[in-house]
């Protein structure tokens, strides 16, 4: 493990997608400005894993994540980023209980971000079922919309789901709050708001990241972005 001070960063460069050397991944994790806050040391006491919902169901332990990162074994850390850390439910019970004030959940979040922004192989598989959410969040900033609740996607949610998706427009209209009387977004989002959101995504590398890791999705999104920009700019 390098003893040199790591340069801290606020975010990763999406143009470094593909840089997956184990040492550079560990360096990226340790360089995150939040790293110093999420990990201080470790007493190996087991409070985090004892509190952890995923520890009960998966081969996953926040204690092992912390210990592995602290060990400085870059290859072991990289192996974890492939699948292991994606079991975390991000509930932050570990962070609330850790006697060292570590945040194992926060550490996992940094590792996930690095895994995605470096385009690690497993990420493509992990993100696949996420496409619909990503499309919504990138285009309007909502993560869930009424029209996403469809029986095809949620057959396990039971016999009332078809009710929810039939005559949706009318049922949404029957919600007595004007902004909610829509189906393709969670509420009416003004075009100006989406326009501003696109600037944020552009300036923070999010669009560029999506372009690199999911070109098909990016194509759909960029069409929507262009249309909206044209509309807004021509109305000025």
């Amino acid at each position: 493990m390098s003893e040199e001070a790591v340069m801290t960063h606020l975010r990763l460069d999406p143009d470094n997608v593909g840089e997956q050397d184990a040492e550079s991944l560990l360096e990226a994790i340790k360089g995150d400005v939040r790293y110093e806050e999420v990990i201080h040391g470790c007493l190996n006491c087991g409070v985090c894993s004892g509190s952890c919902p995923s520890h009960r169901f998966f081969d996953y332990s926040p204690r092992i994540v912390v210990q592995t990162v602290l060990s400085g074994d870059a290859q072991a850390v990289k192996d974890m980023m492939d699948e292991y850390i994606w079991a975390c439910a991000q509930c932050y019970t570990c962070a609330m209980r850790c006697p060292f004030h570590n945040s194992p959940g926060g550490l996992v979040m940094i590792m996930r971000e690095v895994a995605v922004w470096r385009g690690m192989e497993a990420v493509h598989r992990l993100l696949k079922p996420y496409g619909r959410v990503l499309l919504k969040v990138l285009s309007i900033g909502n993560q869930l919309t009424p029209d996403m609740i469809q029986p095809d996607f949620f057959p396990d949610w039971g016999p009332k789901i078809p009710w929810s998706s039939t005559d949706l427009a009318i049922k949404r209209k029957a919600i007595p709050v004007y902004t909610l009387q829509v189906t393709t977004s969670a509420w009416r989002v003004s075009p100006q708001t989406s326009y501003e959101l696109y600037t944020i995504y552009e300036e923070t590398g999010v669009f560029r990241l999506i372009e690199q890791i999911d070109p098909n999705l990016y194509e759909v999104v960029s069409d929507m972005v262009e249309d909206l920009r044209d509309t807004i700019e021509s109305s000025r």
């Binding site: 991000q90 979040m109 996930r112 995605v116 992990l126 990503l134 993560q143 969670a186 009416r188 708001t193």
Partner: peptide, 20 residues
Amino acid sequence: THQTSCTAWNYHGSGTSNLV
């Protein structure tokens, strides 16, 4: 209508965002 979601659900779930 001038509100967006916080986008944090997506972040915690997929890591496709960042601090900034």
